[in-house]
Write a protein that binds this DNA or RNA. Structure first.
Lengths: 150, 150
DNA sequence: ATTGATCATTTGCCCTGTCAACTGATAGAC
DNA sequence: GTCTATCAGTTGACAGGGCAAATGATCAAT
């Protein structure tokens, strides 16, 4: 076992934390018949509807293909509607979609926040937020740079 | 758009950062014909071989089913060997597996570390590491608690 | 009007990953 | 010795997601 660098250790903890957190969210959302990805898609649609698939894909950072399939499932289950105008499809929540989102939203956000609030005080959260912003912005720039020379 | 709590903002940034980072790693590892998951599996096997599938699954935090499939692919490509003794299978790297791992390892670790080293100094990394440890440990405890009452 | 270029979306093929049901093998209990 | 509980691993059905090739629809130039 080689000795890992500090950044590698941070990376490992972060990946595992995100995995655990997603797992917990999935367990929690199961009672509403939703997955984390679906919950996030519904929440994003509610905030931006009507929205095109391309914009939704960007907002959720998934590929066009991925969003197409997920929306097909959500449509099949009657949670969203896709209205085609011209060449783009505009996505909106159905009654059922809004209903399940409103039932799931509060407890999901609470469950999610608790993971942070239970162990980090306000100051620590501010610090973490600032650090994550730096990392996130940098990773975005790297992704953009990778796009360029392809 | 509701105003999101600080913890939710941190969460979003962290998830997106991990996504971006994984994507960058996948792009990088493509030249070696590996995915991030495969890279991590090979690295883990090298450090602990010979190792059983169950232990490997625990080490990588994936389910037994998931590890079974991934190892089947790695075996098909000749990167690992599975030796069955009694009821358990012991996994080791093949020559080819060790070779590709040793070619990919340095640049992958470097690429990975750069994401942190480029924007965070030593102090910031120590702070982040400490915060992530708290979060990670807490998420582990929560997962354990969820297991209990099922 | 026809031909192309362009953009949104879909689809085939693949990898990752979960869960639950199933197979095989071993170890005890009788 | 047989029967059963248990444990390692596999497999089917599914969701999530990537990439690349194919569709479809619009728009611009001829």
């Amino acid at each position: 076992m080689e000795d890992l660098s500090l950044s590698t250790l941070i990376w490992l903890r972060m990946v595992r934390f995100v995995q655990n957190s997603n797992q917990l969210s999935n367990d929690h959302l199961r009672q509403f018949g939703l997955t984390v990805a679906q919950f996030e898609a519904l929440a994003h649609i509610r905030n931006f509807q009507p929205v095109t698939q391309t914009d939704l894909a960007k907002g959720l950072t998934v590929s066009g293909g991925g969003i197409s399939r997920m929306l097909a499932r959500l449509e099949r289950e009657g949670l969203i509607a896709r209205e085609q105008t011209w060449k783009t499809k505009h996505i909106t929540l159905t009654e059922a979609g809004l209903d399940v989102l409103e039932r799931a939203f509060p407890s999901q956000l609470h469950q999610q926040s608790a993971l942070f609030d239970d162990v980090l005080d306000e100051d620590e959260q501010r610090t973490l937020h600032a650090l994550m912003k730096k990392l996130y912005d940098h990773s975005l720039a790297e992704r953009a740079a990778a796009e360029e020379n392809d």
